[in-house]
Design a protein around this nucleic acid. Structure first.
Lengths: 246, 246
DNA sequence: TGTACATCAGTGAACGCGCGTTCACTGATGTAC
DNA sequence: TGTACATCAGTGAACGCGCGTTCACTGATGTAC
């Protein structure tokens, strides 16, 4: 029994030369596609244009992606994973009980990634691509990385008694029931009113980044990063009601 | 001197038969385009498809719109005007000193319009259309109708002493300077910190509607209207710090 | 009221372009004995 | 180490489609005298 045979048989061992070259080509295709996305937008992403830049006939790309939509899906998954990983890393770098710092870090990481990759951000949080439907079984899990961090920060804050949510703003019973059901499925359950504040904070983050990247702050504010930081502070203190520990 | 001659000469008088028919055709083209937009998205909007549905050869449409982009611009302007008018009407229907009610009404009007016209909302607040640049001289004024209402509500609230903005959250001097400059240009100037809260509230509205319409709340909340109302209340009370009068 | 002319809506053909996807194929790279 | 075979990447031609825009034109609708 020789080593190479074992490797190809198990599949989990280091890849063969062919497999490595193939993986490399897949990455190159995605890189080109990402660049086209940035230049033209998702609706204009075309397999033929990618093939042209790859220096290959258009039908060759079908060896790697069975259709244009599957390429799009791969790009979406990558974008969720990349931004999610950055948000996770930013959170992990903070002391666990520094809730305010963690919220700031996560929010800033998301915005920084979005500003650096506006077209990828648009792909995830902008208008749906016409005629394209993301397959949930591939995109949901990666999408949950970012929101997962936010939920964890919120749950830790609640656990530490650092969340001040006044119950004076009533929600209809139907909403509370729904939110309770979702919140109960989390690793560490949180009350519906707290969860609602988290959703509000999330909506604010996406709204602030969207207004900026999509040009609605033109002629209003030049230093958008400063505005964002300030807004994050306002949301952390007043929407979630975060307090410093001790 | 006969009446008809005067009318066509002044230009402001009631339109001729030809002008009326022409205006009607323009409206029909826009209506068809709006429907296509809803079905396919902005990138897929095509003059040929519109012409086909209008029952006319494709070149005929050029009598009414000199290019595809100008048609898009017309749709954008219409959407801003329509949503802006609804928001204005909602505001106007409230007692002037019912600041909370006015904010609620404006926010709800925007969301209601967006839910009823998701593709138009995407056109205004979603990803920029690839390769298209809106001519500012046509789109800026209509876009300011909605934000103008929000600013007015904020200014009135400030004037009535109903805004509670703690200054404990510092903003960098550069940001304050910028916001002061913009706020000073308003009909009724407001302090930079208050203006910043207004921007935060606006970001939240857009974020909340965006997350909902673009599918990010799927499997989270079914009753999105209830969530939105609740969030608006939280933002009004805690971000802007609105208080009931008296 | 009637004729001559100007205006304008709409036609039809064409230009040149790009797209996604299929299919039978060549030739290089790897594998088994 | 050498040969026979299988696998796979990439080719090239084709199918059928849609797009924006231009241009010379026909024919109907309006206007001036």
């Amino acid at each position: 029994v020789t080593a190479p045979v074992d490797e190809s048989a198990t599949g989990t061992a280091r890849p063969t030369r062919r497999e490595r070259v193939r993986a490399q080509t897949v990455e190159e295709i995605k890189a080109i596609a990402r660049r086209h996305l940035a230049a033209e937008g998702s609706a204009a992403l075309s397999l033929r244009a990618v093939a042209r830049e790859l220096g290959v006939v258009s039908s060759a790309v079908y060896r790697y992606f069975p259709s244009r939509d599957e390429l799009l899906t791969a790009l979406i998954v990558d974008a969720y994973e990349e931004s999610g990983a950055l948000v996770e890393t930013a959170d992990t770098a903070c002391a666990r009980d520094d809730i305010l710092g963690r919220f700031r870090a996560a929010a800033t990481a998301l915005r920084t990634w979005a500003v650096a990759n506006p077209s990828a951000y648009a792909l995830l949080y902008g208008s749906p691509v016409p005629g394209y439907h993301a397959p949930p079984e591939q995109t949901i899990a990666p999408a949950l990385r970012t929101t997962g961090v936010l939920v964890n920060v919120l749950a830790d804050a609640f656990r530490l008694g650092l969340v001040a949510v006044d119950e004076s703003i009533p929600a209809p019973a139907s909403l509370t029931t729904e939110l309770d059901r979702v919140a109960a499925s989390l690793d560490f359950p949180i009350p519906a009113p707290v969860f609602a504040r988290g959703l509000t904070a999330w909506a604010h983050l996406i709204g602030a980044i969207t207004l900026d990247l999509f040009g609605h702050l033109q002629n209003v504010v030049a230093d958008r990063a400063a505005l964002f930081d300030h807004e994050v502070e306002v949301v952390a203190r007043h929407v979630i009601g975060l307090r410093h520990p001790g």
